[in-house]
Design a protein around this nucleic acid. Structure first.
Lengths: 148, 148
DNA sequence: CTTGAAAAGAACTGCCT
DNA sequence: AGGCAGTTCTTTTCAAG
């Protein structure tokens, strides 16, 4: 983990579709040297994997809502039951178990607000142990490269 | 946008590093046909791009905190000033502009809770227009494939 | 949509400094 | 560790059925 590795991580964060040769050119290494470092970072688990980002709006899912969920009852059983049930809802794209005002934060997509209401009432509110629920509708978001 | 396209999107969601040939085998198309469909999905903006997922824990950032931020004052100027200032903080990995109890939700990483306290007190609380702030510490999270 | 083929480029390997 | 050179595999494009 030296400065060259950090430079490589910066480059691939900015553009995940770069070849080893292109990464090498960007940081001043040969294709083979850059590839070996990328390989090492992958095997160390630091480069965890690629993800494809779908444009959900173009697929007809124009609404994203964050739900803060507080469970009415707690305990190991409740957490597991809630997580299993919430994972079966296709509109739920992310389940975050958190500490604070809520127990879970869910990222939910829907075609529109009417569709979201359906998901909320028929799927989310019926989950086992759900207590208080709070919604925040996403207006826009920005991803940032992060610290390094 | 037919069933084959949807099947392709499912496959590449599950594994973003698949070659066009491998995608074709998975959905019952030839290499060339699968490539043409992937190309079309990319050009239509539905496949928006790849992202690399870094393992921030292995890089020494063991703490992730979600911050709900309510601005003390509002208006176009306040939003823009806040967004510009918050984007300059390297520990902020995501800025979500939302409607609801908060105006913004921030995803913040730090080396540990002491480091997070430093970021919160010296960086976040000093942002222009910041009013109420609420923190939720991430315990675990799960990404789900999403609806299709 | 399929097959086959060809050119370009990327991934991987071994050897040498 | 880094560079060079070579092999293999993918990507990408094209022609033809």
């Amino acid at each position: 983990m030296d400065d060259l590795d950090r430079a490589i991580l910066k480059v691939v964060q900015a553009n995940a579709s770069l070849s080893a040769g292109a990464v090498g050119r960007a940081v001043g290494l040969s294709q083979a040297a850059a590839w070996r470092r990328l390989d090492r970072l992958r095997k160390a688990g630091i480069l965890a994997g690629r993800e494809l980002s779908l444009d959900l709006e173009r697929l007809g899912f124009g609404v994203t809502v964050f739900l803060g969920v507080k469970l009415a009852t707690r305990g190991r059983v409740d957490l597991e039951g809630f997580e299993r049930a919430v994972s079966a809802i296709p509109e739920v794209r992310r389940v975050e178990h958190v500490l604070g005002r809520y127990d879970y934060r869910l990222r939910v997509v829907a075609r529109d607000l009417a569709d979201f209401e359906r998901v909320l009432r028929r799927r989310i509110m019926g989950l086992p142990g759900v207590g208080e629920v709070e919604a925040n509708v996403l207006l826009s978001e920005e991803r940032r490269p992060g610290p390094l």
